[in-house]
């Protein structure tokens, strides 16, 4: 009976989620060229990587062999990722280039995150409940940020940025910068911030009382180009930019 339970547990852990753990609760985590990622903040002391969706696509023929990438990366995690550690920095890179798995990476509060993805296979990056610094340098990814409480520096060229704040931490600067797609930000009506909004070709819409413009419509267009506006008397520096598309700034 005992061995049967053991067997069941093993079955559960291997078939439900393929998982890899990096023991790290401070320093930096770099995620380089991993196409589909969901980042989740958690209170644990390890970085935990789980694979969602399709089970491994490794062909039968490749059993017992190691996957190599043209970049010389080696799958040392068993889940299609290469993980290397250098001092206090861990780097995660995707080995296969035809992967369609989404990696869910649970990150402890003390680990700063850097995500970089330049290829057009980059899918939506989701970041949920992240309390540490998050920097994103993306080319094609959309970026969705839910309930961030750490500082943010996000840029993407072709994707959009949408961010929803439960509260705006006064210790952190926030910079959200898209080029060809929109930026949509929701903040609580009590948030304190100095908003710096700018666009070269798009328009800006807001229902926040930023002390400029006299339009009565619900979401009013404030002006084109660049403006600085205090919300609730001002607070943390909060920069939002979309070069070619629109900016939406809402309260909830």
């Amino acid at each position: 009976m005992k061995s049967f339970t053991c067997f069941l547990l093993m079955l559960c852990s291997t078939s439900l989620v393929a998982q890899y753990t990096i023991s790290q609760n401070s320093g930096k985590l770099k995620i380089i060229e991993v196409n589909e990622v969901t980042l989740e903040g958690h209170a644990g002391s390890d970085i935990i990587i789980e694979v969602e969706g399709e089970e491994s696509h490794i062909p039968e023929r490749a059993k017992g062999l190691k996957l190599l990438s043209p970049a010389g990366l080696e799958d040392n995690t068993g889940i299609g990722l290469s993980v290397t550690k250098d001092g206090t920095t861990s780097t995660i890179q995707e080995v296969s280039n035809r992967s369609d798995e989404r990696y869910i990476i649970k990150v402890p509060t003390g680990v700063a995150i850097y995500y970089e993805c330049s290829t057009h296979q980059g899918e939506t990056l989701i970041a949920q409940d992240i309390a540490s610094e998050l920097e994103v340098s993306a080319n094609f990814n959309d970026v969705r940020i839910i309930n961030p409480t750490g500082p943010l520096a996000i840029s993407t060229v072709h994707g959009s940025i949408e961010a929803e704040f439960e509260n705006v931490n006064q210790d952190n600067s926030i910079s959200l910068h898209a080029v060809h797609d929109h930026v949509d930000v929701t903040v609580p009506s009590s948030a304190k911030a100095n908003f710096m909004l700018s666009t070269s070709w798009g328009e800006m819409f807001t229902d926040l009382d930023l002390d400029f413009g006299h339009d009565d419509s619900d979401m009013r267009r404030v002006s084109s180009n660049k403006m600085v506006g205090k919300f609730n008397g001002g607070g943390v520096d909060f920069s939002i930019r979309s070069t070619h598309d629109d900016i939406y700034l809402r309260k909830k």
């Binding site: 943010l152 600067s173 520096d237 920069s239």
Partner: peptide, 12 residues
């Protein structure tokens, strides 16, 4: 070493 601190420094 923190990107966002450098950004905040620029703002200030």
């Amino acid at each position: 070493p923190s990107t966002t601190e450098r950004i905040q420094g620029i703002y200030h």
